[in-house]
């Protein structure tokens, strides 16, 4: 592995990045349609849809980039997603009038086969497994020529 390559964009991490990328694409495309076609029907849900799309895009980019800054950006966006899917999922059940309009996070992401509920947990596990302190220790133990 080349040193300037991200330690997160390797192996099974690549699969995670691809799933994030697809989710980012799906969320962005859907929110674009919602805002263009019927924003006034549910401004709150559709604004959230757009916010979640941006967060997924940032998370995807953060997972592919090397360095500590991007590592923390990935943590922040992925935790935001987990909170988002839990909070909006619960609110969509309690206040269907506000949130029942389809967004990535409504009903815990059921419209996306619950991928939005599962993927942040896998993301957090992956980030924890590839934490920078571990990598530095590993490099010190086995220096590369």
């Amino acid at each position: 592995m080349v040193q300037n390559k991200s330690s997160r964009a390797v192996g099974v991490g690549r699969v995670l990045i691809v799933v994030y990328g697809i989710l980012a694409l799906a969320a962005a495309a859907r929110s674009f349609v919602q805002i263009v076609e019927r924003f006034d029907e549910a401004p709150l849900a559709y604004t959230l849809s757009a916010v979640s799309a941006v967060v997924y895009i940032v998370a995807t980019v953060a997972l592919t980039r090397p360095g500590r800054g991007w590592y923390f950006a990935a943590w922040i966006t992925i935790c935001f997603e987990l909170l988002g899917v839990l909070i909006v999922g619960t609110l969509s059940l309690m206040h269907p009038d506000l949130f029942a309009h389809a967004s990535v996070w409504s009903f815990y992401g059921s419209g996306y086969l619950f991928v939005p509920l599962v993927i942040p947990v896998l993301g957090i596990a992956w980030l924890y497994a590839r934490r920078p302190s571990l990598q530095t220790a590993g490099n010190a133990a086995a220096p590369r020529a």
Binding site: A26, A29, R30, V33
Partner: peptide, 15 residues
């Protein structure tokens, strides 16, 4: 919605 339909189709074609 035709717009929604084509957003899906074009996204799918890119993957």
């Amino acid at each position: 919605s035709l717009l929604e339909f084509y957003m899906y189709l074009i996204s799918a074609i890119l993957l």
